[in-house]
Deep mutational scan, measured.
Amino acid sequence: MTEYKLVVVGAGGVGKSALTIQLIQNHFVDEYDPTIEDSYRKQVVIDGETCLLDILDTAGQEEYSAMRDQYMRTGEGFLCVFAINNTKSFEDIHHYREQIKRVKDSEDVPMVLVGNKCDLPSRTVDTKQAQDLARSYGIPFIETSAKTRQGVDDAFYTLVREIRKHKEKMSKDGKKKKKKSKTKCVIM
């Protein structure tokens, strides 16, 4: 069974824990209790493949930012979460993405942009803004509501699919490099 290491990042209060708990335990946590770091595991079937999701729910508070490099190193894919009623959390996505790329030393890291709290009427981040940002990053965008469960499975499952595509691409690139290195030079 394939294991996928997913990391949920975003500013404090955007609903990272609520999304994760909704996926794992099928219930909505409405009281806000700032996370330092929590880890969850769940076995699911995605596109006919049974897999184990190892999900790291991270601290959004700035005082825990020193811990970010460590979990970013171990993560295979990242859910970059903002709240649709919090423009600052949307603007912060850029910083999370840049930090992930720096730590992973790669421009090509599996990510999904997630606009959470889409059940709320007080939207300050337009869907088109988020779609445009995701398009500019070359990553999928999904709106979710941890409260109603809308888009929750889709967000995590899409990230797994992005990781699969990335692994497939990397193995193809690896095979191309191996083929090239088999060419021999004969000096007579």
Rank of each mutant, 00 (worst) to 15 (best):
D38A: 03
D38Y: 07
Y32V: 01
E37F: 00
V14R: 05
D54Q: 05
L19D: 13
K42N: 09
H27K: 13
T2M: 09
A59H: 15
K42C: 11
A18S: 09
K42H: 08
G15N: 01
C51W: 13
Q61E: 15
D33N: 09
V8Q: 07
G12N: 09
Y32R: 01
I46Q: 10
Y64A: 15
A11P: 14
K5R: 14
T35L: 00
E3G: 11
S17M: 00
V44L: 06
G15E: 01
A11S: 11
K5S: 13
E49P: 07
I24P: 00
L56D: 08
Y4T: 14
D30F: 10
L56G: 14
Q43T: 05
L6W: 03
H27R: 14
L23P: 02
D33L: 14
N26V: 06
Q25M: 12
I46K: 08
D38E: 10
G10V: 00
L23C: 15
G12S: 10
G13L: 14
G12T: 07
I46W: 09
Q61I: 14
L56M: 10
G13R: 09
G48M: 07
P34D: 03
T35N: 00
A11F: 13
T35G: 01
S39G: 15
G13C: 14
L53V: 14
L6S: 01
Q61S: 14
K42E: 05
L53E: 08
G12D: 09
G13F: 13
D54L: 01
D33T: 09
G15Q: 01
V14S: 12
H27N: 12
G10M: 00
L6T: 04
A59W: 07
V8S: 04
E3M: 11
F28H: 05
G10C: 02
I36S: 01
V14F: 10
Y32I: 03
V14E: 12
V8W: 03
S17G: 03
T20F: 08
V7C: 10
E49M: 09
Y32D: 00
T50D: 04
F28K: 02
E31I: 07
Q25G: 11
D30Q: 08
S39V: 09
G15Y: 00
K42M: 15
E62P: 12
D38S: 03
E31T: 09
D57E: 05
D54V: 03
S17V: 01
T2K: 13
P34R: 00
